[in-house]
Design a protein around this nucleic acid. Structure first.
Length: 458
RNA sequence: GGCGCUAUCGUCUAGCCUGGCCCAGGAUGUCAGCUUCUCAAGCUGAAGACACGGGUUCAAAUCCCGUUAGCGCUACCA
C-alpha cells in the first residue's frame, strides 16, 4: 500500500512550487490507489500562523487535492522527544550544551555576523535552556536510489553531527520528519530537489531508529522568469493569488502538470482524471522549470472558452459583485458568453466589459482622438432614428439598420463602426458591435450616442 | 571552500535507458498571411535548440571522460 505525504509549514501561503509537490504526491497516491497524507510542519512556533494554515488548506481544496489523513507536528512533540531519548539511551546520540556549538561551528559562508548574533540566546533565557540532543553521524557511504534522479552516493564523513532536539525542547526538521515518516508508514517521499542533500542525514536516522527507509523521488524546483527561485519579485507566487486573479483551478493544475511532466503524444490539455491514469513518477523531469505566465494564460483561456457559461458565472459572481455591486446576475450571462475565449482570466472580463456595468463609462483618450474627433452628429442621429423604428430589437435587425444606413450615406462600414464602438464602450476592442448594441439595450445605446450629437441636430 | 543536483528552440517539453527512422517533433511566445467592424479565437506559414571540448563507433542529441554555467545543501530554519 502506497502512502505518501505532503508536509507544508504554515509560515506563508501555499506557494506554486509547493502546490506542484502536493500535486505529484496526490497524483501518485491516486494513481497507485494509496493514501495521501497531509502533515503540517508547525514546530516553528514563532513563524507558524493559523491564518496561513487555513489558507493552505483552502488552496489545496480548491486545487482538488483531498487528503486521507491529517497530522500536526506541534501535537507530536512528546513523540519526538521519546525517540530522541531512545537514541540517547542506545548511545547513538549525546547531549551538548548550547554554548559549545556556537563557537565551533561558524564555518559556513552564509554565517554572517548578523545571523550569528541572532542565534545567540538572550542572557535571561540561559538558565531555562537545556542541553540539546545531538545525533552521532557515523562515517559511511550512503546510497540513495532516487526514482527520478537514479543512484546518488554520499559520504557522510563530511556531514556534521545532527541536532535532534534543540535546547528549547523542540525537534529539528530532519528529525521530526524522519520520526513522522517512519511512524506514519510513508512508503514514498516525494519532495523538492532542494532536499536531496538532506536525504543522507535522514537515511542514517531511519536505520538508527529502526524504521524502514522509504523510496525517494526528488522533483525539480520551479524557477522564476529570470531563472532564479520563484519569488514575489517575479510575479504572483501563491495559489490563492491566482485564484483571486481569476484563474481556473483545472487550468492551473493542467499547467502545473506540464511543468516537469508530459503525458506524451504531444498532449497539452489533459484533465486530472486522465493524468491519474497516465502518471508515472519515473517520467518526471530532472530539470528545473521556469514558470511561464504566457502559457498559463493560454491554458486558462482554453479552459474558459470550454467552460459552460453558467459554471463560469458561478466563479465570476463573487468577483463581479465586489466590483459592480448593483449588477443583476441574470443579465451577466449573455455578456460573459461574448467574452469567453477573449479573456485570459476572469479579472480581464471585469475590465474589458466594464462599459456594460457602469452608467458613466470611461472613454479611452487615444480612442477618442482617433475615432470621435470629427463631427458625427448626422450619422449618429440617423442611426438612432433607425433603431427607434425597430419593432424587434435583435442583433439581426440592428445590423440591417446599420448596413442600410451605411449604404445610404455611401460610406464604408468601418468608418462608422469604430466610432460607435468607442462611444458605446469607450474602447477600440471588444466583441462584435451589433452584439454589443443588442446587449446594452436601446435606451443605453441612444443615451451614449446622443452625447456626441451636437445641439442643433438634437 | 566542501558535498550534491542539473544542462534540447526565448519558455514548457518529445526523443536519450534499448546509438541509425532526428540536417531533432509538439506546444507556448514572437513575426507574417488568411478571416474580419476592432480585439480575441481559428487556420496557414516563418524564424528558433541538442552548453562547450574530447573520445568510443561505419554511425552519437542518445554511450564514456573532462570543462563551463546554473541551482541546492553545508543552521539548535523548514
Amino acid at each position: 500500500m502506497v502512502r505518501v505525504r505532503f508536509a507544508p509549514s504554515p509560515t506563508g501561503r501555499l506557494h506554486i512550487g509547493s502546490a506542484r509537490t502536493a500535486l505529484f504526491n496526490w497524483l501518485y497516491a491516486r494513481a497507485k490507489k494509496g493514501s495521501f497524507i497531509l502533515r503540517i510542519e508547525d514546530t516553528d512556533r514563532e513563524r507558524s500562523k493559523k491564518e496561513y494554515l487555513d489558507q493552505i488548506l483552502e488552496s489545496l481544496k480548491w486545487l482538488g487535492f483531498d487528503w486521507d489523513e491529517l497530522y500536526f507536528q506541534s501535537k507530536r512533540l512528546d513523540i519526538y522527544k521519546e525517540y530522541a531519548q531512545k537514541l540517547l539511551n542506545e548511545g547513538k546520540a549525546y547531549l551538548e550544551k548550547p554554548e559549545i556549538l556556537r563557537f565551533t561551528q561558524d564555518t559556513s559562508p552564509k554565517d554572517t555576523e548578523q545571523s550569528r548574533s541572532a542565534r545567540v540566546q538572550k542572557p535571561e533565557d540561559k538558565d531555562k535552556r537545556r542541553e540539546a540532543i545531538i545525533f552521532k553521524v557515523q562515517p559511511q557511504k550512503v546510497k540513495i536510489k532516487d526514482l527520478i534522479h537514479g543512484e546518488i552516493e554520499f559520504d557522510t564523513s563530511v556531514i556534521k553531527d545532527q541536532v535532534l532536539i534543540k535546547s528549547d525542547g523542540t525537534a529539528t526538521y530532519n528529525f521530526a520528519c524522519v520520526v513522522d515518516d517512519g511512524l506514519l508508514g510513508i512508503t514514498h517521499v516525494i519532495r523538492g530537489d532542494d532536499h536531496i542533500s538532506n536525504t543522507p542525514k535522514q537515511i542514517l536516522l531511519y536505520s538508527a531508529l529502526g524504521f524502514n527507509t522509504p523510496q525517494f523521488a526528488h522533483i525539480p524546483l520551479i524557477l522564476g522568469k529570470d531563472g532564479s527561485r520563484l519569488s514575489k519579485r517575479t510575479g504572483a507566487t501563491a495559489i490563492s493569488e491566482y485564484k483571486a486573479l481569476g484563474y481556473l483551478s483545472p487550468a492551473l493544475v493542467n499547467y502545473l502538470l506540464l511543468l516537469g511532466w508530459s503525458p506524451g503524444q504531444n498532449r497539452e490539455i489533459i484533465s486530472i482524471t486522465e493524468a491519474i491514469k497516465a502518471f508515472e513518477i519515473e517520467d518526471v523531469n530532472k530539470t528545473a522549470a521556469i514558470f511561464d505566465l504566457d502559457k498559463l494564460n493560454w491554458i486558462n483561456n482554453h479552459y474558459i472558452k470550454e467552460s459552460p457559461t453558467e459554471e463560469l458565472l458561478d466563479l465570476l459572481w463573487p468577483l463581479l459583485q465586489k466590483r459592480y455591486p448593483q449588477t443583476e446576475r441574470s443579465a451577466v450571462s449573455s455578456v460573459l458568453k461574448l467574452y469567453q475565449g477573449r479573456i485570459n482570466n476572469l479579472l480581464d472580463f471585469l475590465d474589458w466589459a466594464d462599459f456594460f456595468f457602469l452608467d458613466e463609462i470611461e472613454i479611452n483618450e487615444e480612442a477618442k482622438a482617433k475615432f470621435l474627433e470629427h463631427d458625427l452628429s448626422k450619422e449618429f442621429s440617423l442611426f438612432i432614428e433607425g433603431l427607434d423604428k425597430l419593432e424587434v430589437f435583435n442583433v439581426e435587425n440592428i445590423e440591417r439598420v446599420f448596413r442600410d444606413l451605411v449604404k445610404e450615406l455611401n460610406i464604408t462600414s468601418r468608418k462608422l463602426i469604430h466610432p460607435i464602438r468607442v462611444a458605446l464602450t469607450g474602447k477600440t476592442i471588444g466583441p462584435g458591435l451589433f452584439d454589443v448594441i443588442h446587449l446594452l439595450g436601446k435606451e443605453r445605446v441612444k443615451k451614449r450616442l446622443k452625447k456626441w450629437v451636437r445641439e442643433e441636430n438634437k
